[in-house]
Design a binder for these strands. Sequence first.
RNA 1: GCGCCUGUGGUGGAAUUGGCAGACACGUUGGAUUUAGGUUCCAAUGUCGCAAGAUAUGCAGGUUCAAGUCCUGUCAGGCGCACCA
Length: 803
Amino acid sequence: MSQKYDYAKIEAKWQKYWEEHNTFHADNDYSKPKFYALVEFPYPSGQGLHIGHPRPYTAMDIVARKRRLEGYNVLFPMGWDAFGLPTENFAIKNKIHPALVTEKNVAHFKEQLKAIGLSFDWDREVNTTDPNYFKWTQWIFLQLFKHGLAYKKEMAVNWCTSCKVVLANEEVVGGCCERCGGEVVRKVKSQWMLKITEYAQKLIDDLAEVDYFDRIKTTQINWIGRSEGAEVDFETTTGDTLTVYTTRPDTLFGATYMVIAPEHPMIGKWADQLTNMDEIRAYQEKAAKKSDFDRTEMNKDKTGVKLEGVKAVNPVNGQEIPIFISDYVLMSYGTGAIMAVPAHDERDWEFAKVFGIPMVEVVAGGNIEEAAFTDCATGVMVNSGFLTGLSVEDAKVKIKDWLEETGKGHRKVNFKLRDWVFSRQRYWGEPIPLVNCEKCGWVAIPEEELPLTLPEVESYMPTDNGESPLSTLESFINTTCPCCGGPAKRETDTMPQWAGSSWYFLRYCDPHNDKELASKEALNYWMPVDWYNGGMEHTTLHLLYSRFWNKFLYDIGAVTTKEPYMKRTSHGMILGENGEKMSKSRGNVINPDDIIRQYGADTLRMYEMFVGDFEKAAPWSTNSIKGCKRFLDRVWALQDMLTNGDAYRPELESAFHKTIRKVSEDIESLKFNTAIAAMMALVNDIYVTGSINRAELRTLTVLLNPFAPHLTEEIYEANGFGGVLNEQKWPVYDEALCVDETVEIVVQICGKVKTKLNVPAGAAQADVLAQAKADPKIAALLEGKQLIKEIYVQNKLVNFVVK
RNA sequence: GCGCCUGUGGUGGAAUUGGCAGACACGUUGGAUUUAGGUUCCAAUGUCGCAAGAUAUGCAGGUUCAAGUCCUGUCAGGCGCACCA
């Protein structure tokens, strides 16, 4: 052997072999047990692959390769989430069609992914910008529309002044655009909305049926934000009704004023009766200019204006109470109006202090002069009419019953989750397949006309008034109504990037189907995804959206499972060498092409898995990667020490069984770093013996194969183990052989280690204690002391407690 | 402010139900091989100490025969949410 480990040659050879033999193609052979491993498909940016991409891809590649060796029919697909702003912006700047930009970027990404030796089934590649794909994205939208889950709404939206695009709430981070960091302002626009709120309860409930990391579940539950309370109707002196939502109806006797959102519609209605309308208008204008972020920024100083001329009546005691407008009440949550109980709500307390409003204590136990008493678990009701003397919990039930009996209110569940703003005034997205007819209103285009493709336009720039570039194209806009045949205009907005990624996992099951999004047979066999790994940052966006779409499609019978993903895990980021996030501006970017050239793909894979806890962020280290290269060099060099032998040698037998067990278990629990450490330790043990036999080398190559597929295939073939490695069986271990024959027992005196003994595994307590006491060093230390206690832990330690 | 998570050598990180802290690497030091650099191999490597030994998991307490692990308090860092009534 004695040849150098020529990774470049070996990797090119096996990548070619896999491609030519279509090795990783997932058959639609429905008789075999299946395993569907999924990684988030990338956005093919112009910069090419980031060094962070291979981390989750390699991890799931390891799982997929292990499953194949275990006899599963494995679906491990890849595709491109290719609509989106960076491509469009590049197209605008360079006056080139975004489809061409996308094509070029995809080709580059694909080449880079193949160079890592990932076992994707490239026959099932999907691309969200391919009309054969987005035909079905549009089809799904039409079903949502037909089922009343898509609707158009005039609303204040988040507008990124830099991208010139509407953002979903989820895309606004700290008052700035998630993508470009530009300023986000409020703007009133007519938008397509998807009623994700209709599925809020199911999205919470069905988390019980899936295996996600706890923090992923918690984040989703918090984001959906369910709360239980009541809606209460307050009469006003104008004869109107003002409905509020509250989670504390038990404190109704303590409501001393009301607050409504500055944009509350009642204000317009009461304009004639309000004597301080100028002041109110000024406050409304000030509030309208602020984004949601600005409104939350100033949460310390409560501001507001009292409505002079209108009062509300507390339904429990008939008391007239003032109404204020204040921007601490949001129109978008609940009813846009609250009953304020300053004694038992911090915000109301602060507001009442500013405006000198009286407080009424209705739950005993706090000091309302100092602070609002909000701890509801322990309190007893006071000053509360028929609720007085009850516990808070009982009072909640009683008041809700009372509200429902008297018709003054009712139980109500609310969610923080808002409906999904689905329109984008952009070119590079799926056109929304609807037309607007003067007579018939919004009408779906016939399904047989799908896909509705993007027309060629002069400029991809949004117009100055924020409309889509498509809005300037008369030939696209003007059409006929599918319903009445009269003149109609097409919707010119496109879908957000989230659309295509909300169902791609379904398309992988049957990617070339032109009759339906995927056949029932294929879905029935492959779905749900058995293991989905992706970024933590997608927990409230992509994960929620795609679960929503899948649930809707399930309800209309288009898919076969209620939940799309059985198991969801998340990986940590790869940081720069300085521990900061990698970015061009910080100058700490590592290019995967360079690493592969210098060390090889197998080393890159090993290092990305060895770098640290898979779930945590880890800084890149150019020094540490050498350790992985060294390990693979050592594995390669084992071939020079090869001897015959068809069984593990006795001195290594236990080590082999233990390592197989460790690697098998660690892969399942994402502990790739310790799996690799175990293999390194095994190789070190082998080196100590000075040789390796054929049985041992064969097992080692299979075990290491998911991590370093090229190197192991080459060793396997070069030594004539028979067949190709990827068609072999995952090694098995014998639990009985994982146990050592003798164990080292620690002997402590008063918890301090004094000596160690070698005893047979499972030795009897009495024997071990006797042997410990007989040890000269221990005997000397016990001499003249009173033995109070003897602790014995099987196969672990002995502890003598003395006085 | 609220919620969740994390604090272990010079560095990345390991440590079943509480049971030898520092696996596995990186780096460093010394040695061997080499004309030299690189590679490879051997040895050492938490801290203090010649040694015996002592001491050590952010800090301060507590429970226990025994604590990185459990409890209380506290500090630092990270993530999420952020006036959600």
